[in-house]
Design a protein around this nucleic acid. Structure first.
Length: 749
DNA sequence: ATTTACCCTG
DNA sequence: CAGGGTAAAT
């Protein structure tokens, strides 16, 4: 398969592209996703794709809180990375608390929200047939009564304020509930007698509503008097659902206007944002009652998407602000709390009482500490395990993940269940699945490659037990421990691949086909991209810590170059994430090893210009990516460099020796040139250099001799022609090199 | 604009 | 052997 020198680069590139396109690389897939949506989140707090999937049914059979939960989690993906940790934790907390006592949490988060309180009522009605009257009454209770368990000091300071605020909000709610266009199927709200033709409603109907509502809605409003709507809705609930939603939109619009009026103190900037949210919001909470009552799945699915994203972020911001407030003021500074409450009340449909906020803050702190403790325990457990011990003791991941990785291996890399998995894992599991095809020396030698350069692995005498005698995970652990590297110095560069692949690809996993061709070749661009991300985003990137490690150990030149500016990005905030990810990296440890280098050198006897495809064929145990490929190509480039230098030197020596006829130039196993080459490519002298290589060397030597003899060396590009000739002399590498035991077998030759 | 190869240095 | 600069190729 020799090809001329001039076309070799092209061939290499084209072959590589073909390979990349033909073989789906999970890593590349993840990279592409990541590049499309760079938000990151820690492994241990990662959210499954199912959770992120907006159409996941599990969130539609639940109550509004479940939907909100989903929306919150989705916001975690879509939001900025700056606060993802907190948000993820909050999401966890949310899930946990809503499972335990969702009704309470309803009121916890929504009790004082005019919008969501109706939702709460409806949810409770659906479940327990409680009258809305009772619910409203609950809402009317002061915080101290509504949450009798609260013992937080300083509640009294806010009772008056909160009571007044709640009273006003409830008044508005009642007014809204009694509106003729309210699409509440049940009569509870009407029965409770609390509905009034509120002056506020009329006021806004006259002043603002017509300006804000779409034309279509105004027409509908005129076409359907309140009684007609109520009756027709009862008779034809499903048929009227669409119209109902429009009416609910209208209600929502009025509600927003009421909020604006009610909290008119607040700036106009965020009001604009609210107006943008007008339409999506319109379908949400109030109509949740109607839709749930009529059991309209379509509407439910729509509603699940209609909770404004701003609500989530604002909610989280509110939680953060509330927590901060509490820590700063210890419940004494009422002004700050009031400001916080009012701010979020005005711009958000969420609302908290102080007591509720404190409950939430406490719960969040508890969950945070638990999460940290769990991670620390996992790490301690991991690194207290001895290499020879069982692997069962180390399972930083959900139990299904490694199993899944093993099962799927590299055969079906597009399985949705794998999208969250680090794409490097299959390789490790490949390793474990076929230990005989891997040389454990590869792994043990990989890390000290730079640390102790002098060590030369013996091809004939493998020292280390085959990995099949060692637990799988503990083998990986042994690799890490055997390297005698501190945790911080675990080999990094390849890991950063896995990490940044993990980091963001989930965000767009549903949006981008992982197998799409354009998503394959983006891995390296992603590395570059991430290296240029603003520091405040990088601070939470778990792999930033790794870059102080022995980067050279895995010889990933480009990563070293590209990510060099990440050295200064270590932050304590990444510690937890770093720990969790470092566990992952034990699995995805890979790279070119000294044995790979030795093998490449032996391959050089057959091919001087191997294509990337050839390299991939003959290094089946290497998880190829751009960096690995570049490294291998660079190796051969270095081989060629040395080779041609030796040739030129020998040719000049021959000319200095008075040789005039190229036929007198011979390359034998006894000559100086051969010894130099053998020393370089076959230092252990345990490989029988093929005769074809001697012939190639002889041709090369003659080419150099002729060039020098003819004085072509004055031309700066005088070697090009020689390269062109030599590249055609590549011969096929023996098949034995494809197998893992190739070194031993080849040596026997 | 990106990739690749060559060349040089350490 | 890796890193970096440069130029050529795509």
């Amino acid at each position: 398969m020799p090809d001329c020198h001039s076309t070799s680069p092209l061939a290499v590139e084209s072959e590589q592209r073909r390979f990349d396109s033909g073989i789906p690389n999970p890593f590349d897939e993840c990279i592409s996703k990541q590049s499309a949506a760079p938000t990151i989140y820690p492994m241990n707090l990662s959210i499954s794709d199912q959770d992120a999937e907006g159409s996941s049914p599990c969130y539609f059979e639940g109550d509004q809180t479940s939907r909100l939960h989903m929306r919150l989690k989705r916001n975690l993906f879509e939001g900025s990375a700056t606060s993802y940790t907190n948000r993820a934790i909050i999401s966890q907390f949310w899930k946990k608390t809503t499972k335990k006592n969702s009704p309470v949490d309803h009121s916890l988060f929504f009790s004082s929200s005019n919008v969501s309180s109706s939702t709460t009522e409806s949810s409770q009605e659906d479940r327990s047939s409680n009258s809305s009257k009772d619910s409203v009454q609950d809402l009317s209770l002061p915080p101290s009564e509504a949450h009798a368990t609260s013992s937080v000091e300083g509640d009294r300071f806010f009772d008056e304020h909160l009571r007044a605020k709640r009273a006003r909000v409830e008044n508005i709610i009642r007014g809204m509930s009694s509106s003729p266009t309210v699409a509440i199927p049940s009569n509870e709200l009407e029965k409770d007698g609390s509905h009034q033709q509120g002056g506020l409603r009329d006021q806004y109907k006259e002043n603002k509503r017509k300006q804000r509502l779409p034309q279509q809605q105004q027409q509908q409003q005129q076409q359907h008097p309140k009684n007609l709507i109520a009756s027709s809705f009862k008779k034809h609930r499903r048929e009227e659902c669409h119209r109902l939603k429009q009416q609910l939109q209208e209600m929502q619009g009025k509600l927003l206007e009421l909020q604006e009026k009610f909290f008119q103190v607040y700036d106009t900037n965020e009001l604009e944002q609210e107006e943008e949210e007008d339409l999506p919001d319109a379908n949400f909470p109030l109509d949740g009652t109607a839709c749930k009552a009529e059991n309209d799945e379509d509407a439910q699915g729509k509603f699940a998407h209609d909770l404004s994203d701003v609500d989530h972020s604002l909610y989280i911001d509110y939680v953060q602000a509330l927590t901060q407030d509490r820590e700063l003021t210890s419940g004494k500074d009422t002004t700050r709390h009031q400001n916080t409450d009012r701010k979020f009340n005005s711009n958000n449909h969420f609302s908290f009482s102080l007591v509720e906020g404190r409950h939430l803050a406490d719960a969040l702190k508890y969950e945070l500490s638990n999460a940290v403790a769990h991670i620390v325990d996992s790490v301690v457990q991991l690194f207290s395990v001895k290499p020879s011990s069982s692997s069962q003791s180390f399972h930083p991941f959900p139990p299904s993940r490694p199993k899944d990785a093993v099962q799927s291996d590299s055969t079906n890399l597009r399985m949705p269940s794998q999208e969250l998995r680090c794409p490097q894992e299959p390789t490790i599991h490949q390793y474990f699945e076929n230990p005989q095809t891997f040389d454990i020396q590869d792994q043990t030698e990989a890390l000290p490659l730079v640390v102790r350069k002098s060590s030369q692995p013996s091809l004939v005498n493998p020292v280390i037990k085959p990995p099949c005698q060692i637990g799988h995970t503990s083998t990986a652990l042994a690799i890490a421990l055997g390297s005698q590297l501190p945790l911080n110095d675990l080999p990094v560069p390849v890991m950063s691949y896995g990490m940044h692949a993990d980091i963001g690809h989930n965000l767009s996993s549903s949006a981008k086909d992982p197998a799409s061709p354009e998503s394959i070749d983006l891995s390296w661009e992603t590395v570059k991209l991430r290296s240029k991300i603003a520091p405040h985003h990088m601070t939470q990137q778990p792999y930033s810590r790794f870059h102080q490690g022995p980067v050279d150990s895995l010889c990933l030149t480009h990563i070293k170059a590209e990510c060099g500016d990440l050295h200064s990005l270590e932050t304590d905030s990444s510690r937890v994430n770093y720990l969790s990810v470092s566990l992952t990296t034990l699995y995805i440890q890979e790279g070119l090893t000294p044995n790979h280098l030795k093998k490449a050198k032996l391959m050089f006897f057959y091919t001087r210009y191997p294509s990337s495809n050839t390299l991939k064929t003959y290094f089946p145990d290497v998880k190829f990516n751009r960096c690995i490929t570049s490294q291998l190509i660079k190796w051969f480039s270095n081989f060629r460099e040395f080779y041609y230098i030796q040739m030129e030197k020998s040719a000049r020596q021959a000319m200095a020796d008075g040789i005039t006829d190229t036929n007198d130039l011979k390359v034998t196993r006894d000559c100086e040139l051969f010894r130099a080459l053998n020393m370089h490519y076959n230092k252990a002298n345990d490989f029988q250099i093929p005769d074809t290589f001697l012939e190639v060397a002889e041709v090369t030597l003659r080419e150099f001799f002729n060039a020098v003899y003819l004085g072509k060396d004055t031309d700066p590009a005088w070697k090009k022609g020689i390269y062109k000739v030599i590249c055609k002399l590549d011969t096929k590498v023996p098949e034995v090199f494809k197998s893992q035991g190739c070194l031993q077998e080849a040596i026997i030759d």
